[in-house]
Design a protein around this nucleic acid. Structure first.
Length: 760
DNA sequence: TGCCCGGGTGTTTTT
DNA sequence: CACCCGGGCA
C-alpha cells in the first residue's frame, strides 16, 4: 500500500479527506509526494476524479503530478482530474463561459510581445513621450494593477495610484490602461493577467457560474501557495467557499515571485479564512546531504520575515559546499565545465545529474561556450521561447488571425509579411479609422468603403487580396484538421517559400523551425484523435487549429522536452529551477549586485526575497553544491569589477571548502590563496569587500569615500536610474542609506556604499 | 516602400 | 555587447 511509504506527518496530511488544510513543507520534504498521494487517496476513498481541481505554477509540475498519480492508481482513474497551471485551467473555463463576458470562444491570448506592442501603439497614438511611457514600465504598472484586481476604471478613480503616477511624471498611465483594455476587448484578446482577472469577474458577476464550478470542484489542491497573488487567491477562495475542501501546500522560505504580485500574506490569511483549518508541517528533508541542509538553514536564518520551522535531515554529512573563485566570467565558464567533466568521470555520473543555475538568463553564454568545447551536452531553459521566435510567431499569427479575425496584433504583424506592398502609412490610416469608429482593424479593412477609408486604389486592392486570403483560411478552421490547415497556411501565406529561398544560415534554421512547428501540430492532431476515440460521445473526431492555439500562448520551452534532451546538463535560472532537484548543482555568479541583484538592494524585503532565492538554489542539490563567483565580469559592453556575494559569508566558513582551480592558480597562485584564506577568517572578509568597492573600474563615479558629500537636497546621477534628487539620508556608516527620487524610476532606497552616485 | 547604417539604450526573475 | 528605432537614400 502506497501510504506505507510516508512518514507520520506526511501520512496525516494525506489521510485528511475533507475540510481546509495547509501543508507547510520545507525544501525537499516530500511536498509533491503528499500532493500526489493525497489525490490518489481521495479517489481511493470514493471521491470522483471529475470533482478534483489541482493547481500548479508550471505545466511541467502539472505533467509530473499527472504521471505520478496515474502510476499510483492507473490512468483511467486519474484522467478526469483537472490539473494544470492557474492560467491554463482558467483559460479553459473562460473559453467555456466566453459569452458571459462578451468574448469570442476562440479569443486570442496575447503574450508579452503582443502586449508591449499594443502599449507602444497606444502611447504613439496618444502622442505621449515614449521615454516616459516605456512599454516595459507601463506594462508592469498595468500588470500589477490587474494582479491586485484593480480595473482600469478603478485605477483612474484611485487617488493614491494616480497621484503616485503624477509624481513620477506619468500621469496618464491610467488612461493608457483603459485604452489598452478596450483594444484587447475589441481584438477579442486577453493577456496573461486577464485570464485571472476575468475569471474573478466571471465568478463574481454570475452566481450561477460560480455555483456550477463550486459544485464541480469539490476538492481543490494548490501547490506553491506562497506564490499566489491576490487575483489567484480570490479565485481559490470563491471556488472553495461552498465545500471548503481546500488543501494548500507551500513554503514561505521559497517565496520568490513577489515581483509578479505574489503575496506571502495569503499563507497567513489562510487561518483567518478557514478558522477550523488543519496545519501540517513537513520538516524532514530527504533530498540533500546534511551539510547542504545546514548551509541552507544558515542562509535563511538571516531573514527576519519567516514562519518558524526547523528543516532537518537524517542524511549523512556529505561534502562541504565547494567555493570557486575565478578572474572573469569566461574563466568561470571554463572552470565549471572542467569541474563537471572531472566529476562525471570520478563519480561515474550522467550529464543529467548536473545543473548550472544562475540569477539572470544573460549569464548562460560563458557556460554554453565552455561546455561545447568540452563536448558536454547541455540544454538551456528560458530566454526566448520557441514560440516567441520571429518566424514561429509570424506563422502562428496567421493561425491566430484565421481563428480570430479581430486579433489586431496578429493582423499588424503579418499584413505585410511576406511583403505585399501594404505599408505602415496605410495601416496607420486604417487604425485611426478603426479607433474613430470604435471597431476592429479587421472590420475597417474588410469594409473599406463603408468606413470611408482613403488610401490609394493599388494598396486597397492588395488589402482586399489579403482579406480574401485570410477569409479562406477562416472558412476552413472548423472543418479541417489542424495539421492540414496549418500546412496549407504556411504555403499559401508565402512564409514557407520566403524562408525556403533564404539560403543564409539563419534562413535555414528558420525554415527548420517552421517544419518543427508543423511537426508539432501533426503530433498534436494525431494525439487528440487517439484521445477522442477513447472518450466516445465526442462529436468532433479531429483537432482543429483553434484547438491547437488554445494553449500555445501558455506553453514554455520547458513544456516540450524532447527525448534526445533527456541526458543533458541543465542550464537555467534559479526561478525556473524551483521544484527540481539534481545530484550536483552549480550556483554561479554569486556576486554582489548580481546575486543579490542590484535592484533589490533598496529594501529589506527585496533583499530577503533574493536570499530566499539563494535558499531555493542551494536546496536543489542532493549530493554536492558548488558556488562560484568571479572578480570581473563583462556587463553591458564593458568589464566591471565584482565582489563576492554576502550570501557566501552567510553560509558560514565551516561549511565552505574553497577549491583550487588550475586556471587561477597558474596565473597567480599567491593572490588566489590569500583571498581563499579570507573565507576562513571572516574578519578579513570585510576588508576585502571594501577594497573591491573602491577599486571599481568606473573612475568618474563616486565611491565609498564620497559618501559624506551626499546630502539632502542635492542632485545626483545613478548609473541606471539616471538623475535624481536626494530626499533623505539615514543609517550609520558604513551602511548609510539615501532615499532618492528618480523622475524615471520613482523613489529608491539606496545603500551609498554600493550606489556609485555621481554628484551633479 | 524598402534597406542600410548609426546612435541610443538597456538586464532580474515568468505564466 | 546586442537590439531596436529612426533617418537617409535607392
Amino acid at each position: 500500500m502506497y501510504l506505507d511509504e510516508l512518514n507520520p506527518e506526511q501520512r496525516k496530511a494525506t489521510n485528511q479527506i475533507d475540510g481546509p488544510m495547509m501543508v507547510i513543507a520545507g525544501a525537499g520534504s516530500g511536498k509533491t509526494k503528499v500532493l500526489t498521494y493525497r489525490i490518489a487517496n481521495l479517489i481511493d476513498n470514493g471521491v470522483n476524479s471529475i470533482n478534483i481541481l489541482s493547481l500548479t505554477f508550471t505545466n511541467k509540475a502539472a505533467e509530473e503530478m499527472k504521471s505520478r498519480i496515474s502510476e499510483l492508481i492507473g490512468e483511467a482513474n486519474s484522467r478526469n482530474i483537472w490539473m494544470g497551471t492557474f492560467h491554463s485551467v482558467f483559460a479553459r473555463i473562460l473559453r467555456i463561459e466566453h459569452d458571459k463576458i462578451g468574448y469570442p470562444q476562440s479569443f486570442t491570448i496575447y503574450d508579452t510581445i503582443d502586449t508591449k506592442s499594443l502599449i507602444k501603439t497606444i502611447v504613439k497614438e496618444k502622442n505621449l513621450d515614449d521615454k516616459m511611457y516605456k512599454p516595459n514600465f507601463v506594462y508592469s504598472r498595468i500588470s500589477s494593477a490587474k494582479n491586485s484586481m484593480i480595473s482600469a476604471q478603478a485605477y483612474l478613480r484611485n487617488e493614491d495610484i494616480m497621484s503616485q503616477d503624477k509624481q513620477y511624471g506619468r500621469a496618464r498611465i491610467g488612461e493608457i490602461y483603459l485604452e489598452y483594455q478596450n483594444r484587447c476587448f475589441k481584438a477579442g484578446a486577453m493577456d496573461f493577467d486577464d485570464l485571472l482577472f476575468k475569471t474573478n469577474i466571471l465568478l463574481k458577476k454570475f452566481p450561477e457560474v460560480l455555483l456550477k464550478y463550486q459544485d464541480k470542484f469539490r476538492y481543490i489542491l494548490v501547490d506553491e501557495y506562497q506564490d499566489t497573488n491576490k487575483a489567484q487567491y480570490l479565485i481559490i477562495k470563491a471556488l472553495s467557499a461552498r465545500f471548503e475542501n481546500i488543501c494548500v501546500v507551500g513554503d514561505d522560505a521559497q517565496s520568490i515571485y513577489s515581483f509578479r504580485g505574489a503575496n506571502i500574506e495569503n499563507i497567513l490569511n489562510f487561518k483567518k479564512d478557514y478558522t477550523d483549518y488543519k496545519l501540517y508541517k513537513l520538516e524532514q528533508n530527504y533530498r540533500s546531504s546534511s551539510n547542504i541542509v545546514n548551509a541552507a538553514n544558515n542562509i535563511i536564518g538571516h531573514n527576519k520575515d519567516q514562519i518558524q520551522k526547523k528543516v532537518w535531515t537524517s542524511n549523512a554529512d556529505g561534502n562541504l559546499i565547494k567555493l570557486i573563485k575565478t578572474f572573469s566570467d569566461n574563466e568561470e565558464g571554463k572552470v565549471i565545465a572542467k569541474n563537471i567533466l572531472n566529476t562525471k568521470i570520478k563519480e561515474n555520473a550522467k550529464n543529467s545529474d548536473f545543473a548550472i543555475l544562475y540569477r539572470t538568463n544573460a549569464q548562460s553564454r560563458s557556460f554554453e561556450e565552455a561546455l561545447r568545447k568540452l563536448n558536454l551536452d547541455y540544454k538551456i531553459y528560458g530566454g526566448l521561447s520557441f514560440y516567441q521566435r520571429k518566424e514561429i510567431k509570424d506563422l502562428i499569427s496567421y493561425f491566430r488571425l484565421a481563428v480570430n479575425n479581430k486579433d489586431e496584433e496578429a493582423l499588424k504583424r503579418i499584413i505585410n509579411y511576406p511583403k505585399r506592398g501594404i505599408g505602415a502609412n496605410s495601416i496607420g490610416k486604417a487604425m485611426l479609422c478603426a479607433n474613430e469608429n470604435d471597431t476592429s482593424l479587421w472590420d475597417v479593412l474588410s469594409n473599406q468603403n463603408k468606413f470611408g477609408l482613403k488610401i490609394n486604389s493599388g494598396t486597397s486592392k492588395k488589402i482586399n487580396d489579403f482579406i480574401v486570403l485570410i477569409k479562406n483560411f477562416s472558412k476552413k478552421v472548423e472543418n479541417t484538421d489542424a495539421f492540414e490547415l496549418a500546412d496549407e497556411i504556411s504555403k499559401l501565406s508565402g512564409i514557407n517559400n520566403e524562408l525556403l529561398i533564404d539560403n543564409s544560415v539563419e534562413g535555414k534554421v528558420r525554415y527548420e523551425n517552421i517544419q518543427e512547428l508543423l511537426n508539432g501540430i501533426k503530433e498534436f492532431s494525431e494525439n487528440s484523435k487517439e484521445n477522442t476515440d477513447q472518450e466516445e460521445a465526442e462529436n468532433d473526431t479531429f483537432a482543429t487549429l483553434s484547438d491547437f492555439l488554445i494553449d500555445v500562448a501558455l506553453l514554455t520551452n520547458a513544456d516540450n522536452e524532447k527525448e534526445e534532451d533527456k541526458d543533458k546538463i541543465t542550464l537555467m535560472t534559479i526561478h525556473s529551477a524551483k521544484g527540481l532537484e539534481f545530484p550536483y548543482v552549480y550556483i554561479v555568479g554569486v556576486e554582489e549586485n548580481l546575486f543579490p541583484s542590484q535592484l533589490s538592494l533598496g529594501s529589506r524585503s527585496e533583499l530577503e526575497e533574493e536570499r530566499r532565492l539563494f535558499y531555493v538554489a542551494l536546496t536543489r542539490a542532493e549530493k554536492q553544491a558548488t558556488i562560484s563567483y568571479t572578480i570581473s565580469r563583462f556587463r553591458w559592453g564593458n568589464i566591471i569589477a565584482c565582489e563576492p556575494s554576502r550570501f557566501i559569508e552567510e553560509i558560514g566558513s565551516d561549511l565552505l571548502e574553497p577549491i583550487e582551480n588550475t586556471y587561477t592558480s597558474n596565473r597567480n597562485k599567491n593572490k588566489a590563496n590569500s583571498s581563499y584564506k579570507s573565507y576562513t577568517q571572516p574578519s578579513s572578509f570585510n576588508k576585502l569587500k571594501f577594497k573591491k568597492v573602491s577599486s571599481s573600474t568606473t573612475s568618474n563615479l563616486s565611491n565609498a569615500t564620497d559618501v559624506s558629500k551626499i546630502k539632502v537636497g542635492i542632485n545626483v546621477k545613478h548609473q541606471r536610474f539616471g538623475k535624481g534628487k536626494v530626499l533623505e539620508i539615514s543609517g550609520q556608516s558604513p551602511n548609510v542609506k539615501a532615499k532618492i527620487l528618480f523622475p524615471s524610476f520613482g523613489e529608491k532606497q539606496l545603500l551609498l556604499k554600493f550606489a556609485k552616485l555621481e554628484l551633479l
